[in-house]
Design a protein around this nucleic acid. Structure first.
Lengths: 177, 177
DNA sequence: CGATATTTGATATGGTCCATAACAATTATC
DNA sequence: GATAATTGTTATGGACCATATCAAATATCG
């Protein structure tokens, strides 16, 4: 597995296909070469899954470039909007983020005035999370960008019914594997 | 998005569902609470994709515990077996691994006598990669483990035809998104 | 041929994300 | 009221990813 993000950044130059290539000079085999055979790799769920995930995140970042939102940040905003009044531990753990790592993420959102921590009066240890007005506005714009530029691309690529089937299968894997 | 691996390590203890919970004590709303609403998050391709990917890798590592092979290492062995005589740059770039990062990965495999670097006689800059006998044997066992414990679980979960459809869609995303 | 550019493997380095331990403040438990 | 547990936080280390740079070897081209 392991698929870096650089992978195919247009590349070309080393893959000119027609380089200076003498015809079988020495003993060492120097066949037509060029493209490698992926073989069983293309049947490995993990390999394909990871490659797809990287591509999707890459595309997501491009779509959100104007709002400067990462997938993680977007998911936090979405979850806080849907579940107002929850504290950091609840939001973080739902997203699978460990509390220590959630601090810097929140610091960022708060410094940009997208999200606010409010000391709970019930339990003065915890911080209630809420979206600021700016946060709500940004999230609204973000949703539109995702819908029109990101998720729409999926439908275009797979078709509506396939898209739903894909999401369902992935959810099943995420929850029951 | 962002889904850590710790996420649900059996957890339970804070989610006892029936803790000491007085009935609406003060002004601050303290409803039944408990489970958060994922909302639109569960419809986000990136979110579900990442969660599924983490689960699959997690399961892969468990299945390969006896052989101590990571997804990345397994993919290298598979690709070297299928494409003997290729150098580091070719193998690495096919997997989307940058050459600098490929060095340590190979060092590991070579130190375990699974893979060997051979100076090419054609081009003495490059290292031809080959599997050692032990590498071939380990890879054979690894394939069996993956087939019987890992990929088999997919069929069990989704069914054969769905599994194929899933791989096809993921490949499409990986290649055309 | 010989000077220059390119390629290959490697090192060093920094960034990001993930995971654990530990702490102060607060709250729960007994 | 003493002890345990929880919350947010800091510090820290590991894994992975990306860039710049290097020496050795090769390719390119005048």
């Amino acid at each position: 597995m392991t698929v870096s993000k650089t992978a195919e950044k247009s590349s070309e130059k080393a893959s000119d296909a027609t380089k200076g290539r003498k015809d079988a000079p020495e003993g060492q085999s120097q066949g037509p070469a060029e493209a490698l055979q992926l073989g069983e790799l293309s049947e490995q769920l993990g390999y394909v899954l990871k490659r797809a995930q990287l591509k999707v995140f890459e595309n997501f970042l491009r779509c959100m470039a104007s709002l400067q939102l990462t997938p993680a940040q977007f998911s936090v905003l979405l979850l806080v909007e849907k579940n107002p009044g929850r504290n950091q531990t609840e939001i973080a753990s739902t997203l699978g983020i460990l509390r220590p790592n959630f601090v810097a993420l929140l610091d960022n959102l708060e410094s940009r005035d997208l999200c606010a921590r409010i000391r709970s009066t019930n339990d003065r240890r915890s911080h209630i999370l809420v979206l600021t007005d700016k946060g709500k506005a940004v999230l609204t714009r973000a949703k539109k960008l995702v819908a029109t530029k990101h998720e729409s691309r999926l439908k275009e690529l797979l078709g509506q019914s396939n898209r739903e089937a894909l999401l369902e299968m992935l959810s099943k894997i995420a929850n029951e594997f």
